[in-house]
Design a protein around this nucleic acid. Structure first.
Length: 428
RNA sequence: GUGGUCGUAGCUCAGCUGGUAGAGCACUCGGUUGUGGUCCGAGAUGUCGCGGGUUCGAGCCCCGUCGAUCACCCCA
């Protein structure tokens, strides 16, 4: 350690600052809107939880829990962990506060930072952002499809095109167990290196995800989970497919899909974007029918997704998505005399309280510099105020787009904005 | 965690075989009295990621370290 090393952000965190923060804001807002738009209600949860929650919820055997968690002890000696994903925390809160005692399904959305101690890479950060939804307490295939549709609609609204959806069914616990045994038997016949064997030991499905050609071809002869599904699982999965088709949501069935968290059962899905490189998953999720009971709650099923906000931002950039340039400022005020500065601020505050968006020039700069700043701010109008204007209560309001100037009374400027100029209040 | 590539002004980058740093954009000021966007002129700005070494001399060479990036792995 030496103190001449310049201060910098911790390794692998994503940060958003102007101008790029606009894209982040936009993506996050659209994701949330899609969920709210479908009847999902906000749940805001702590960023750290009892370590035990993730051990039991996400699963001891997963990489996420076994080697990627930020775990620490607090001053009371409790073991806490920075949340690596959202579902476990939501279930904990639903159980703890009896949210499932009302009408079902319980539909919730969340948004915020998550943490995983992985080797960073573009699209993979140690602190990253997700928007997720959970629908708890319904076995309908319709709710599976609604959840997928919330994601798909959000992506489309954002303006993304170059992405695709893959779905599969992981079956119930029993079918999966029967299948896993067969798969282990098959894998034992393969001549694998030590590393792969160790991975297969933890979760044999993982080998389906291996990028190496020889493993891929070896695994092409492997038994497929789909062939071991129970009749009811198959029926459910087929219903999901026909509903998706009905809604016009394109998908492909990938019966080799692997999900990294232990709790998934039944329907599982993944959205990937094709402009992103190795970290191409922009969102994914599925059913987790045993999770709630596992965490000590009622035996209710659930389904949800997590969407990576960071990766969606990258996807927008890859596709050059144009963000609706809702020019935020209505007015930019340029005070050009000492006594006008306070008056300009007072005017700005008066208009701001009426929901007119106003900014103004600070510092003692020339009128030219002030107008340049007005121009750069993107404001629709500008207003120069000097001592003459203050005395006469009259100033020249300039339309920055057309250059047209009209004379207005400063004291009643808000009326002009409301009546003649017609300013649009911000969305919502 | 493993391997490869990279790290020079706010941004994008140039800098030949080592001789103490440059361009474009952005920024600031100005182009005669108080109105922006184009144009013209002038100007400010760098611990060359950080630490150490080799050398008379290092942005350029060597070692270490931090960070980014690509792939594996993993997944959002």
């Amino acid at each position: 350690m030496n103190n001449s090393q310049p201060l910098q952000a911790p390794k692998g965190v994503s940060e958003y600052y102007p101008d790029r923060s606009r894209i982040f804001e936009y993506v996050q807002r659209e994701l949330i809107n899609s969920a709210r738009n479908s009847g999902y209600l906000l749940i805001e949860l702590p960023i750290f939880e009892d370590t035990e929650l993730f051990r039991r919820g996400v699963g001891e055997s997963t990489d996420v829990v076994s080697k990627e968690m930020y775990t620490f002890e607090d001053r009371g000696g409790r073991s806490l962990t920075l949340r690596p994903e959202g579902t476990a925390g939501v279930m904990r809160s639903v159980i703890e506060h009896n949210l499932d005692r009302g009408s079902l399904p319980v539909k919730l959305w969340y948004s915020g930072p998550f943490f995983r101690a992985e080797r960073p890479q573009a699209g993979r950060y140690r602190q990253f952002y997700q928007v997720g939804i959970e629908a708890i307490g319904s076995d309908d295939p319709e709710i599976d499809v609604e959840v997928i549709a919330v994601a798909d609609r959000a992506f489309r609204k954002i303006g993304l095109k170059n992405y695709s959806l893959e779905i599969t069914s992981l079956g119930d616990k029993e079918s999966r167990q029967r299948y896993t045994e067969k798969l282990r038997v098959f894998i034992a016949t393969l001549d694998l290196d030590e590393e792969s064997l160790r991975r297969a030991e933890i979760n044999p499905l993982r080998l389906f995800d291996d990028k190496r050609g020889e493993i891929k071809s070896a695994m092409s002869a492997a038994p497929i989970l789909m062939d071991y599904l129970s009749p009811s699982s198959i029926e459910h999965f087929e219903r999901v497919q026909s509903l998706l088709t009905e809604l016009g949501i394109a998908f492909t069935v990938n019966n080799r899909m692997v999900r990294g968290l232990d709790y998934y059962t039944g329907t599982a899905f993944e959205f990937s974007h094709h402009g992103l490189g190795a970290q191409s998953g922009i969102g994914g999720g599925g059913r987790y029918d045993g999770l709630m009971a596992e965490l000590g709650g009622a035996s209710l099923s659930g389904i949800g997704f997590g969407i990576g906000v960071d990766r969606c931002v990258l996807a927008c950039e890859a596709e050059n998505v144009a963000i609706a340039e809702s020019s935020l400022l209505d007015l930019y005020i340029v005070p050009i005399a000492l006594e006008a500065k306070g008056a300009a601020l007072a005017l700005a505050e008066r208009l701001r309280s009426l929901e007119i968006n106003v900014d103004l020039a600070f510092g003692d700069r020339s009128i030219k510099a002030g107008m340049k700043a007005a121009n750069k701010s993107g404001a629709k109008f500008s207003l120069v105020i000097g001592s003459d204007e203050l005395l006469s209560d009259t100033a020249a309001l300039k339309n920055m787009e057309t250059g047209a100037i009209i004379s207005v009374k400063i004291s009643t400027l808000h009326v002009d904005f409301e009546n003649f100029i017609g300013h649009h209040k911000g969305e919502r």
